[in-house]
Amino acid sequence: MDVKSTVIAIIAKQAVRSPDAVLMTNTLDDLGIDSLGLVESIFSIEEEFDIQVPFNANDPADSDFDISNVGSIIAGIEKLVADQNA
């Protein structure tokens, strides 16, 4: 599985819905993922790709990681994975 499908699978599992029902434009709110759910998803993503995601739950806006929707999360993870392989 590529980065995109893997991240979608992790988010879908957290949202308790099928991966097809996770849209790139969905926000975490749309998917019913709260702050604890988000922290848990990031943990799963870090474990899956062996990366560190720069996310601070205190101030998501100030984190160097855009969580505004599924598409932005995937873009962020793709960059972190690419940087790691570079």
Binding site: V39, I42, F43, N56, A57, N58
Partner: peptide
Amino acid sequence: EGLRVMSRDGCRPFSANRNG
């Protein structure tokens, strides 16, 4: 650390730049 509510650089209660 797992909860991601910790600050790496200091405890600044009530200050606008607090980060955990």
